[in-house]
Design a protein around this nucleic acid. Structure first.
Length: 303
DNA sequence: GACCCGTGGTT
DNA sequence: TAACCAAGGGT
């Protein structure tokens, strides 16, 4: 079978209108972010991607600079302690990411000759590197064609292509297929498109109140062309924070980060009045490897 | 798929 | 002010 009208068949290697517009816009107006600078290493891309997981750019920037200033290579971080990685992580949140990034540095140093791998399987085997981060490294560090799908890309695809106000529940299979369908064929064009889609979602096609009036994709957006119908899909239930174990864990870690020496149990006990919950959180942090119980009964960041 | 894991700015 | 939101990953 073939298309009876050859003129509707895009030329091999040609970009879709969406890709054409988004990449053109990105080339003109991309934010100036340090991990996009020329000379950025694969390691610095990996560090930035992990830090940016669930954390806004503005809060990542200072910590990113500190981390790479101190640990410019995986070997440099691997030679330091996990506790220092956690301490310099500061208040970025989800400190297990710091622990995993340190474990990444060790694995890269020992198993990959100090070079961040570029294969999907090798990347996915690294601690803290999932479907998003692995492909982000392939695309942004190595310029490879990879379907990079984060929350921004999911939202832009849902609107511009799917005609929906919001993205449905995440599904790696569906999400990757949706991105593959519009991803340019060539390596460089594909990587640029991924970055452009993320940027559009982060800056223009935002979650709550998108700036459609200034959107470069307005003319081809399926959602706008459909009259901006309201979202009718499933609604995720909100997650609380106040009073949860996560808050208690955060308070405990703040004590350990601030103290530059081991602390006694009493220093941890003062952060939360509910003994059972505080103890549960503390035990979980020990199990996670974020707190190191010393033989003398005191506690410290991991060695 | 559901749930857990931090933190702080914005609405 | 409570809820929402931010370049996800692991179990």
């Amino acid at each position: 079978m073939h298309d009876p009208d050859f003129r509707t068949e895009p030329a091999p290697g040609a970009l879709t209108p969406l890709a054409e517009i988004v990449t053109g816009w990105f080339t003109e107006s991309a934010r100036n972010l340090p991990w996009r600078h020329p000379g950025t290493t694969a390691w610095s891309v990996l560090v930035s991607e992990v830090m940016l997981q669930q954390t806004p750019v503005s809060r990542v920037l200072p910590v990113y600079e500190q981390w790479l200033g101190r640990w410019p290579t995986p070997a440099a971080l691997a030679a330091d302690s996990a506790g220092e990685a956690v301490r310099l992580w500061g208040k970025l949140g989800y400190p297990r990411r710091a622990l995993r990034l340190h474990a990444c540095a060790v694995a890269i140093t020992r198993k990959h000759g100090g070079v961040v791998p570029d294969g999907l399987t090798e990347l996915l085997s690294l601690p803290g590197v999932g479907e998003y981060t692995a492909r982000a490294v392939q695309a942004f560090a190595y310029g490879r064609r990879a379907a990079v799908v984060d929350t921004n890309v999911r939202r832009v695809l849902a609107r511009a292509v799917g005609g929906q106000a919001q993205a449905g529940p995440p599904s790696t299979t569906r999400d990757l297929a949706a991105m593959e369908a519009v991803l340019p064929d060539a390596d460089t064009a594909a990587a640029l498109f991924c970055a452009a889609m993320m940027e559009l979602g982060a800056v223009v096609c935002t979650s709550a109140s998108p700036s459609c009036a200034s959107c470069p994709v307005l003319g081809v957006c399926a959602w706008r062309l459909a009259g901006s119908p309201a979202y009718d899909g499933p609604v995720a239930r909100p997650q609380r924070f106040a009073g949860t174990d996560r808050q208690v864990r955060g308070l405990l870690m703040d004590v350990l980060r601030s103290a530059h020496h081991p602390v006694p149990q009493s220093a941890l006990d003062v952060v939360w009045p509910v003994d059972a919950q505080r103890q549960r959180a503390q035990d979980a942090l020990v199990a996670d490897g974020l707190i190191d119980p010393l033989p003398d009964g005191r506690f410290a960041l991991p060695a």
